[in-house]
């Protein structure tokens, strides 16, 4: 039978307080937006079944607290992550500037085996606000930063309007999947699931 390890994709969402991490997760998983979310304390957890290239996976999404104080508690949440989503608010410069801290902190705490190639995805959220007029971080600037960090995929999203959220998470799933094979080496007998295992491995090398 399929091993559970293989079928599970663990995704962590990081970013400053108030950038919309909880909203993005709920928009993706439940297709709902609410402006009544409370501040996340510790970490919240949702799952979603995703299909990718004819295979079903469970995506386990961890929505974390944004305040710096909680970073040192992250290790329990970060460990074993297959992809890390970094979120900032395009209307708040500081939240963009802090992406670097979040990325570095994640790499320190999660200590992935190949930090150079660990998959990140960056989301610039809240592009709907004020019709884009209050925006302070340009797409160009954000893309430049992503490029400088090893071509991190970048999406501009609106959790409120559901804009680009699905597409972004499909990319997140794909990248999380690329990260999987390495850990799968310990479970060679899982290849018979759907016959897609080898194929996955080859896409994994494209990055």
């Amino acid at each position: 039978m399929a091993s559970r390890r293989r079928m599970l994709l663990k995704v962590i969402i990081l970013g400053d307080s108030g950038v919309g991490k909880t909203s993005l997760m709920n928009q993706y998983v439940n297709r709902k937006f609410s402006n009544q979310y409370k501040a996340t304390i510790g970490a919240d957890f949702l799952t979603k079944e995703v299909q990718f290239e004819d295979r079903l996976f469970t995506m386990q999404i961890w929505d974390t607290a944004g305040q710096e104080r909680f970073q040192s508690l992250g290790v329990a949440f970060y460990r074993g992550a297959d992809c890390c989503v970094l979120v900032y608010d395009v209307n708040v410069t500081k939240s963009f500037e802090n992406l670097n801290n979040w990325r570095e902190e994640f790499l320190i705490q999660a200590s992935p085996s190949d930090p150079e190639n660990f998959p990140f995805v960056v989301l610039g959220n809240k592009i709907d606000i004020d019709g884009g007029n209050s925006r302070v971080v340009s797409e160009k600037k954000a893309r430049a930063w992503c490029a400088s960090k090893g071509d991190i995929p970048y999406f501009e999203t609106s959790a409120k309007e559901g804009f680009n959220v699905e597409v972004a998470f499909q990319c997140i799933a794909k990248n999380a999947l690329k990260n999987e094979p390495e850990e799968e080496l310990y479970l060679p007998d899982t290849i018979d699931v759907t016959g897609g295992g080898q194929q996955q491995r080859s896409t994994g090398c494209e990055c």
Partner: peptide
């Protein structure tokens, strides 16, 4: 299930959530 995954909020917020 690491107790930190659920009990962190239970304890720090005195069960208010």
């Amino acid at each position: 299930v690491n107790p930190q995954f659920y009990a962190f909020r239970w304890i720090t917020l005195l069960l208010t959530q």
